[in-house]
């Protein structure tokens, strides 16, 4: 048991150790990400520059690389949070923002904005609204039966397909150059982005923080069936809508800022769950792992084919594919 004043929380060592290790790894990954590139900056100089000692590398480290690394960490954390919440409500380890249509809704709005000649500053707000609009449709279709897991996922898949078809229509009728820009947005990239995008995502997470503290607790009962949950005095439908709504907000905001970076929201919660050995994904560890994954993915995207820059979404997809195969093999192995 852990007591902080009136707060009493069941205390287990494993999640705390995992969280600390992930945090250390995240810090290391950020330092490495700030260090690699042209010019190369020694990690020692990175740390000195960050601590404000004043080095010749301040411009490269603090102004050019740091904003993007911080954005990667913040966006990865938001993906981890969104994935955890959505997977818990969907009761499906393969659910993620793109399975329930949020990504496609954001993508359609962003594609329209990018190909219609709208001002660049309008792309992110349009994507945010598009993602939320898709979520509203999914909720409306799924909520009639208490947002039950299967109905929620089916509604999401249907909406995702419909929006994807609309994206194709817009792309095919658009100017090829605009279409290419939209294509890169859809894959998801952190290139040319930084503080302002990171601030939007971090701000959203900060506003959602009280809800997330509640969610970390409410997720505990998300593995119970509705009858059992009602029996112990819970209102499962209200909980699901609250949890899914929070996840959708986080997903729509981060997708609007960095594009449809695949797989982080899918992989982070499940790997974190296995690391912690819990029966459901742990929120904090999933956020830290998401941050770590996206920082590494963006580092790879910057450096693997340098000077050509890959969209980070290509790298996360490259990690996510083998991960899915791994999950499938593990599932079959356990049942046989």
């Amino acid at each position: 048991m852990l007591r902080l004043g009136a707060v009493v929380v069941p205390f287990r060592w494993r999640p705390v150790v995992v969280a600390l290790v992930l945090f250390v790894l995240l810090c290391l990954a950020v330092v490495i990400s700030l260090s690699l590139g042209t010019p190369y900056v020694a990690p020692v100089d990175v740390v000195r520059s960050l601590s404000g000692a004043g080095t010749p590398y301040d411009l490269v480290v603090r102004d050019l690389r740091l904003p993007r690394a911080v954005l990667a960490a913040v966006a990865g954390a938001a993906f981890g949070v969104a994935g955890t919440l959505i997977q818990s409500v969907a009761r499906n380890p393969l659910a993620s923002p793109d399975v329930i249509g949020v990504t496609q809704g954001a993508g359609l709005a962003a594609t329209i904005a990018l190909t219609s000649g709208a001002a660049a500053v309008l792309v992110a707000p349009a994507a945010l609204l598009g993602g939320l609009a898709a979520a509203v449709v999914v909720f409306a279709l799924g909520a009639r039966h208490g947002l039950a897991a299967q109905r929620f996922v089916l509604a999401g898949v249907a909406v995702a397909f419909a929006f994807r078809a609309l994206i194709e229509v817009v792309m095919l009728t658009a100017d090829p150059i605009d279409g290419l820009r939209a294509q890169i947005w859809l894959i998801g990239t952190l290139a040319g982005k930084g503080w302002s995008e990171a601030a939007w995502i971090a701000g959203t997470l900060a506003v959602l923080l009280p809800v997330l503290l509640w969610a970390g607790w409410a997720l505990r009962s998300s593995t119970l069936d509705d009858d059992t949950a009602r029996g112990i005095g819970l209102r499962p439908v209200a909980r699901r809508i609250g949890l899914a709504g929070t996840g959708v907000l986080a997903a729509a905001m981060v997708t609007a800022q960095v594009g449809a970076v695949d797989f982080v929201a899918l992989v982070a919660p499940q790997v974190a769950r296995r690391l912690v050995r819990a029966e459901r994904p742990p929120l904090l560890c999933a956020a830290l792992l998401g941050a770590l994954l996206l920082v590494l993915a963006d580092l790879g995207a910057r450096r693997l084919l340098a000077p050509t820059q890959l969209p980070a979404g290509v790298l996360t997809a490259a990690i996510g594919g083998p991960y899915l195969i791994f999950v499938l093999l593990r599932t079959r192995g356990r049942r046989s």
Binding site: M1, V7, V8, L224, D225
Partner: peptide, 29 residues
């Protein structure tokens, strides 16, 4: 036929019965 959460331990599941006495800021007594 209640659904058993995957991998949950006996003590943990029995502990869920304490839900009506708990709040997110007071999760165990």
């Amino acid at each position: 036929s209640p659904l058993v959460p995957e991998g949950i331990t006996v003590a943990d599941l029995v502990g869920r019965g304490r839900q009506p006495y708990q709040r997110w800021w007071r999760q165990w007594s």
